[in-house]
Design a protein around this nucleic acid. Sequence first.
DNA 1: ATTATCTATAGATCTATAGATAATGC
DNA 2: ATTATCTATAGATCTATAGATAATGC
Lengths: 235, 235
Amino acid sequence: MTSTRERILATSLELFNRQGERNVTTNHIAEALGISPGNLYYHFRNKGEIVKELFIRYQAMVEAFLQVPAGRPLTWQDKVGYLESILESIWATRFLHRDLGHLLNQDETLREDYREFVSICLKKGLNIYQGLRASGLIAASDEDLQALMVNTWVIVASWAMFVQSMVPDDHRDLDRDRKLLQQGIYQVVCLEAPYLKGEALEHLDSIKARYGSAANAMEMLAGQAGMRRDGNDDR
Amino acid sequence: MTSTRERILATSLELFNRQGERNVTTNHIAEALGISPGNLYYHFRNKGEIVKELFIRYQAMVEAFLQVPAGRPLTWQDKVGYLESILESIWATRFLHRDLGHLLNQDETLREDYREFVSICLKKGLNIYQGLRASGLIAASDEDLQALMVNTWVIVASWAMFVQSMVPDDHRDLDRDRKLLQQGIYQVVCLEAPYLKGEALEHLDSIKARYGSAANAMEMLAGQAGMRRDGNDDR
DNA sequence: ATTATCTATAGATCTATAGATAATGC
DNA sequence: ATTATCTATAGATCTATAGATAATGC
């Protein structure tokens, strides 16, 4: 049977994601687990320690994904695979991005950690883009690639939060969530589209079609709101 | 002399931005103003009402910026002007973006409002891009423009939060903040670069140079961390 | 013996209101 | 008379600990 410590982490993650870290107290976590608050404090000094542990695991997971495969050239499928994995991880830890500003401000160590993490992700991501260029799938200057990498990062890191701010947390629907997340891949692919060459360019349309559509994006962000009320641009 | 109600709003905004909405209680606001908590509650039913009022004012300000000028074709300067104004407003209300997920989840009305707001911004933004196309400054399909618009929105709306998560709130420095914000304009311009034509294309380099640089972005996001420690990509 | 757990609770906030008082505008 | 403000406080949480008890591993 899993250790109490692990169960605390798993339940916290779930509650944080569903209700927002801010709305979940140590009491709630203990209650959800059917253990006493005292017991929880035996395993973690406070809620911040739980958050920190979840944060560290998330970072390790994402960094692990970003390795360039050794000894063979990068393919376009690799690229899409990266996006899928990362969006998946971010979604699994979305409470963290939602309250990122606050969490980083509460804890100096975490902030330094996070900066380092972003730095590493940008560097590894740039490596990947350069690998794609070496494989003849992308044509762009170093400068273009750097700006592209930063934009990709911002979009990917923000996408889950965007989806969340457009859709209430309590009306979750796994199928729709997946679709919304995949639209994030579509958005990043569109970001890269102008630079693509060769095989990547050939597959562009089918990849785009697989992950979403432009209309989808507008509609989704516009949301149900846009479909119910209409045309009154004045307020 | 300004009304107490307005002073409450102004002080709240300042405290929220500086310390995060979550860390500012009604007591703090009252104390900062030198009034009693009771008095504050005379003007606002609760903290949420203060937030909501600030939210509404922010939305109105941004929407007002996004008008297409009547009777003359859009210029490339117009476009940059939009970006500047909006980034400015977002920075002035950055607490809101920082805690957006939470705030929207607390209040059904606010969420609907926000969705509507985003919808309107996307539509108006798309109008602007189409205006630029009509002026011969951009060449792109409708589909491209839609995806571009969504990406622009995500970047712009996230940029202030990004800057914040990379730089501690207590070590604020207005000059540096301005520079970091302007880098956001650089990022958006890079997003649009592949589609630019004519005069816009001619001015591209000078605009980019004015607002930032690719190296800047990597460095900034990598942050001081990247400059202190170095090369240890393993953790 | 050590590790895990529970019970009970002190102390720290924070919210929001009731009720008294002061200031203001007709 | 109405509007603005203050004082004082009840009630609601939440955190985090002390101290007792149970479970576990040698």
